[in-house]
């Protein structure tokens, strides 16, 4: 690849040149697009080799996996997938992950959107003060409060408990609040004022008018929080110790210790564990991309 070509791939089509006719330009543009295709597809496919490796290894025998790590399965075996599914706890782990994710997000959304609504209807010193307090809360890293939080939950018997983990994740409401309040501010004030003058109470206005109108931002928040809570490792690792409470991520982690000699089984467990997040990704991709933009533009 020449220097000009490399540069052209980076910055887009060349500027029209007086010496070259339109057909020469078209040829050049076409060549560029072919170079882009080849280079980007190569990069993407090479980067995806580890995922390919996980999937093929799940269908291999132990010997095959060691002998030709990157070759296609020969012979193809479904024993690993079968063995992984036969472990009763994988379903329990899926159930735990689902309970934790759904429960935490429900609490976060409710608490975060209520606070955002309060900041819209309230005014003056109160909201200013709370706004500053929540901005500080947003900047506190989890690590800074981890040790006292652990002792607090241990003190009330909420360690090794799914409820305890949901309580911990409820502090994510601060993040939800920030995304939601930015969106709520764009709604016209009349939406709150008009029904209020007609006699509707604040709770009714919030629940039946404002919240449904916030659906786009609520979906964005849900998508981001599903990925961060479902995938989280730190809090489950610290707080959940008994096998009955394990999340799916923790289960995969613990599987490595058990199966040091059985890597194909580990790969099969990984494949099964990744299926829900893969489906979620396919379904939610457009909201993720939209949310990256919306969330960032508003700060």
């Amino acid at each position: 690849m020449t220097v000009t070509e490399t540069r052209a791939i980076l910055v887009g089509p060349e500027t029209p040149d007086a010496r070259t006719g339109p057909s020469a330009q078209r040829r050049r543009a076409r060549r560029l697009s072919i170079v882009r295709s080849i280079s980007m597809l190569t990069i993407a496919i090479v980067a995806a080799i580890p995922l390919y490796y996980v999937v093929i290894s799940a269908f291999k025998t132990d010997g095959d996996m060691r002998q030709s790590p990157l070759g296609l399965p020969n012979p193809i075996t479904f024993d690993n997938i079968g063995a992984a599914l036969a472990q009763g706890d994988i379903w329990m782990a899926f159930g735990n992950s689902t309970m934790i994710t759904v429960g935490s997000i429900a609490v976060q959304l409710l608490v975060g959107s209520m606070a955002a609504y309060a900041m819209i209807i309230g005014s003056g010193r109160l909201t200013l003060l709370i706004g500053i307090v929540l901005a500080i809360a947003f900047a506190i890293p989890l690590q800074a409060t981890l040790v006292p939080q652990y002792r607090l939950l241990a003190g009330v018997g909420l360690t090794d408990s799914i409820l305890g983990v949901i309580v911990l994740y409820s502090s994510g409401a601060v993040f939800c609040y920030f995304l939601i309040v930015g969106y709520m501010r764009t709604l016209p004030v009349e939406l709150i004022e008009a029904p209020r003058i007609d006699g509707a109470g604040p709770w009714r206005i919030y629940w039946t008018i404002i919240l449904p109108l916030c659906r786009p931002i609520l979906i964005t928040v849900i998508v981001f929080q599903v990925m961060s809570i479902w995938n989280d490792f730190l809090i489950p690792k610290v707080y959940l110790s008994s096998p009955a409470n394990e999340t799916i991520i923790l289960q995969v982690y613990n599987a490595v210790g058990q199966f040091t000699t059985n890597w194909p089984l580990f790969m099969a467990t990984t494949v099964i564990a990744l299926i829900p997040i893969f489906l979620f990704f396919v379904f939610a991709q457009k909201w993720i991309v939209g949310g990256l933009m919306a969330g960032s533009v508003k700060g």
């Binding site: 975060g112 209520m114 309060a118 309230g122 929540l134 409060t145 601060v174 709770w203």
Partner: peptide
Amino acid sequence: AATWFLMPILAIFTILLL
């Protein structure tokens, strides 16, 4: 009303963060 709506997040903030 605003004060009531802020109660949950303030409770979480105080107990779990502050």
